[in-house]
Simulated assay, not measured.
Amino acid sequence: MATIYVLEYGSYLKVQHQKFQVLQQKKLLFQVPVREVTNIILFGYCHLSHGAVQTALFRKIPIIYYSSQGYYLGCLESKTQSKVTYLTEQVRRAENENFVRQQAEIIVRAKLRNARILLMRINRRRPNEVTNKTITELKKIIKCLDVHPPLASLRGYEGKGARIYFQGLSKLFKGEFSFNQRTLRPPKDPINSLLGFGYTLLCQELISTIQLAGLHTDYGNLHTPRNHHPALVLDLMEEFRAQIVDSLIVYFVNKKIFSQEDFTLPDEKGAVYLKQESLKKFLKYWSEKLSTELTHPPTQRKVTLRTCLKLQVKEYISCLMGKSENYQPMLWQK
Rank of each mutant, 00 (worst) to 15 (best):
K139W: 13
K139C: 13
K140G: 12
K140L: 13
I141F: 13
I142F: 06
I142T: 13
K143H: 09
K143F: 06
K143T: 03
L145W: 09
L145R: 08
V147M: 11
V147H: 13
V147G: 05
H148R: 13
H148W: 11
H148E: 12
P149Q: 14
P149F: 14
P149R: 15
P149H: 14
A152K: 11
A152V: 04
A152R: 07
A152M: 07
L154A: 10
R155T: 01
R155S: 11
Y157W: 11
Y157A: 08
K160T: 11
K160A: 14
G161Q: 09
G161T: 07
A162C: 08
R163H: 08
I164A: 08
I164L: 14
Y165A: 04
F166L: 01
Q167W: 05
Q167E: 04
G168Q: 06
G168W: 02
S170E: 02
K171H: 08
K171V: 02
K171S: 06
K171P: 10
L172S: 00
L172H: 00
F173E: 00
F173A: 00
F173V: 00
K174H: 10
K174V: 09
K174R: 14
G175W: 01
E176T: 05
E176Y: 01
F177C: 00
F177I: 01
F177T: 00
S178R: 08
N180T: 05
Q181T: 08
Q181H: 09
Q181I: 01
R182E: 01
T183H: 10
T183Q: 04
L184T: 05
R185D: 03
R185Y: 09
P187A: 10
K188Y: 03
P190N: 07
P190G: 01
I191R: 04
N192C: 10
N192T: 06
N192V: 06
L194D: 00
L195E: 06
L195Y: 12
L195N: 03
F197A: 01
F197W: 02
F197Q: 01
G198Q: 11
Y199W: 07
T200V: 07
T200I: 03
T200W: 10
T200L: 10
L202G: 05
C203Y: 14
Q204Y: 04
E205K: 15
E205L: 12
L206F: 09
I207V: 12
I207W: 03
I207H: 09
I210H: 07
Q211P: 07
L212F: 15
L212T: 15
L212W: 15
A213Q: 13
G214W: 08
L215C: 09
T217E: 15
D218M: 03
G220M: 08
G220N: 11
T224D: 15
N227D: 11
H228P: 09
H229S: 03
H229N: 09
P230H: 12
P230D: 05
P230K: 09
P230Q: 13
A231E: 05
L232D: 04
L234Y: 15
L234A: 15
D235A: 07
D235M: 05
